[in-house]
C-alpha cells in the first residue's frame, strides 16, 4: 500500500527535522494543517515543542481534533513525538490544567526539583537509555538501553501500566519515556535527533504499522 504520512502542522515543533528524518526512511511526509490531507493519511505524526495548552488551543482552532480522533479510532496509526506524546493523554498540569486528546489514560507532571535531596536539573536535556522488556514492533532492532535524545520538563504518568512501552531513569528518577496502545505510539524523546537509532524508530512506524 502507498504510504501517505501526514505531519500535523499546528504551529509548534521542528517540522523540518522530523520531515528530513522520514525522508531518510524513504517517505516524504505531507506537512499540513488541512483536514482533507489528514483524512487521506495512512500514518499520522503529531510533533510538538512548547506548551501543552497552546498546542491544544491551536489544534482546536484548526478544527483538527475530531478528524484526528476519528482517524485513530478507524485504525490509522498515530505517532506522537515529545509534546505530541503528551497530547495523547487526558490532561496536563503545565501552566494550569488543560485537557488533552484523551487517547491514553493518565496525566502529565513536572519533574521534581530534587531527588534524594540532590538537585534535579530541569529541563532534562540530553541522551538517556530507553529500557524495555518486550519485543514490540515499534522497537524492532532497538536493544533495551539504547540512547535517545530527550528535552523536556514534564513527563507522562499513564494509569495503565500496559500502555508503557519504555521507561527511562534521569538522575535516579524513573519515568515513562514512551507509550503504545493498539495503533497509537508516543515517544517522549526525539527520534529525529537521536542519530541512526532514532531513524530506525521512524522506519518501524512506517513499515510495521
Amino acid at each position: 500500500m502507498e504510504k501517505n504520512v501526514v505531519l500535523v502542522d499546528y504551529g509548534l515543533g521542528n517540522l523540518f527535522s522530523i520531515s528530513q528524518a522520514f525522508k531518510k526512511t524513504g517517505v516524504t511526509p505531507v506537512i499540513s494543517s488541512d483536514i482533507r490531507d489528514l483524512l487521506q493519511a495512512t500514518h499520522i505524526v503529531l510533533p510538538g515543542v512548547g506548551a501543552f495548552g497552546d498546542a491544544m488551543t491551536n489544534l482546536k482552532q484548526l478544527g483538527l481534533i475530531s478528524p484526528l480522533l476519528e482517524k485513530v479510532s478507524s485504525g490509522t496509526p498515530l505517532l506522537g513525538v515529545c509534546l505530541g506524546m503528551q497530547l495523547l493523554f487526558e490532561a496536563s498540569e503545565e501552566y494550569g490544567v488543560h485537557q488533552g486528546l484523551g487517547l491514553i489514560k493518565g496525566g502529565i507532571k513536572r519533574f521534581p526539583n530534587e531527588i534524594d535531596s540532590k538537585k534535579l536539573r530541569v529541563p532534562n536535556i540530553g541522551w538517556l537509555g530507553i529500557e524495555h522488556a518486550d519485543n514490540e514492533k515499534s522497537l524492532k532492532g532497538i536493544p533495551s538501553g539504547e540512547f535517545m535524545y530527550f528535552v523536556h520538563s514534564y513527563y507522562t504518568t499513564p494509569d495503565d501500566s500496559e500502555d508503557v512501552l519504555t521507561t527511562t531513569v534521569y538522575q535516579g528518577f524513573e519515568y515513562c519515556s514512551s507509550v503504545s496502545k493498539n495503533n497509537i505510539v508516543g515517544f517522549q524523546f526525539h527520534p529525529e535527533k537521536s542519530g541512526q537509532s532514532g531513524l530506525k524508530l521512524y522506519d518501524n512506524f512506517i513499515n510495521n504499522f
Partner: peptide, 11 residues
C-alpha cells in the same frame, strides 16, 4: 544550517 539539518540527526 539547512545543509546540516538534512543529514545530521543530532540537535
Amino acid at each position: 544550517i539547512s545543509a546540516t539539518a538534512k543529514n545530521i540527526f543530532i540537535p
